[in-house]
């Protein structure tokens, strides 16, 4: 009796019991449906968001009556007309779109060599340093980081103090478009590096060695081997950076000095400042549409990159 207990311990019996329970709940005949079951939470989550989107769609078609601060019962496209014809929204939209493109290009330019060095270096110390340098700001919230830049770049900040030491009067480094772009690039860099690193890791080092042995210098190797093979990572990182930049709120609000609003800031104003949720909803849906079109164009031109669904290994 004692031996049999040792041979078949209690934990195994518990596992058997659990397995029996699971078999009753989810019989073997349903095993092929297991992947779909695992997909269910994500589908529910996205479904809820889609439901919210329908509600936003409904609100976008209702006009605010400022004598009662109630929304119209009837549907109309007035909010969309206002959003399209307003000079202010046009300025903000073009600023956001241009900003997201500039931030994406510069971030990828910075992220690629960083990620390449991080995955290729033979020095574990350097790799650790690069990882820590990457993750440290990642753990600090966007707002805190933006305020950090206020301290560094302000009129009495570290940079201006350093300039003062060589006789340069204080320079306004903050509260302009370049300051917003700078803040966004710094914020986006870890995202881009993290998305590029797996793509670069997947490139066999032997290919680069082979190119070198055939006489290619590092520039040619980088151009003809690394860049083409890193394209899925570049596309994935580019998409993430572009969409996050396009919809960012905090950095333009804090580093823009109130005069460099992006679309998200304009949406916030409509929802919370003028109480015009209808116009805010219309702007939100237009932002979703513009972001989706941009992603669609990138997919069409460059492919889906690491976000591709086909996934088959060739």
């Amino acid at each position: 009796m004692r031996n049999s207990r040792v041979a078949y311990p209690l934990t195994w019996r518990v596992m058997d019991m659990l397995e029996n329970v699971c078999a009753r709940i989810w019989p073997a005949s349903l095993h092929r449906l297991l992947p779909y079951l695992m997909l269910l939470p994500a589908v529910v989550l996205v479904g809820l968001l889609v439901l919210g989107l329908f509600q936003i769609g409904d609100a976008s078609l209702r006009v605010l009556d400022t004598s009662t601060f109630l929304f119209s019962e009837d549907y109309s496209l007035e909010n969309y007309r206002q959003a399209i014809t307003s000079g202010f929204f046009a300025v903000v939209a073009s600023r956001s779109l241009m900003g997201s493109v500039i931030v994406t290009v510069i971030t990828l330019l910075f992220a690629l060599p960083y990620a390449y060095l991080m995955v290729r270096t033979q020095s574990s110390g350097l790799r650790k340093f690069l990882l820590v340098a990457l993750f440290l700001p990642f753990f600090i919230g966007q707002v805190v980081r933006a305020y950090g830049w206020l301290i560094i770049l302000g009129n009495q900040g570290m940079v201006n103090e350093a300039l003062g030491l060589v006789g340069v009067p204080p320079v306004r480094l903050l509260y302009n478009y370049p300051a917003v772009l700078f803040g966004l690039i710094q914020y986006m860099l870890p995202f881009a590096v993290l998305m590029l690193a797996p793509a670069l890791t997947a490139i066999p080092e032997e290919l680069e060695s082979a190119a070198g042995s055939l006489g290619a210098n590092w520039v040619r190797t980088f151009r003809h081997i690394v860049l083409p093979l890193a394209r899925p990572g570049l596309v994935g990182a580019g998409l993430v950076v572009m969409t996050l930049s396009l919809t960012d709120f905090a950095i333009p609000a804090i580093l823009g000095g109130g005069s460099q609003d992006f679309i998200a800031n304009a949406i916030y104003d409509q929802f919370f400042r003028t109480s015009n949720q209808g116009l805010g909803a219309a702007l939100s849906l237009m932002l979703v549409a513009v972001g989706s079109i941009m992603v669609g164009v990138v997919f069409a031109v460059f492919g889906a990159g690491t976000l591709a669904m086909t996934g088959g290994r060739k």
Partner: peptide, 18 residues
């Protein structure tokens, strides 16, 4: 003020953000 706020607000923003 509340009846005209959004118009004034938009106009101010249009000038300042332009």
């Amino acid at each position: 003020q509340v009846e005209n706020e959004s118009v004034w607000f938009a106009k101010f923003k249009e000038i300042m953000q332009g």
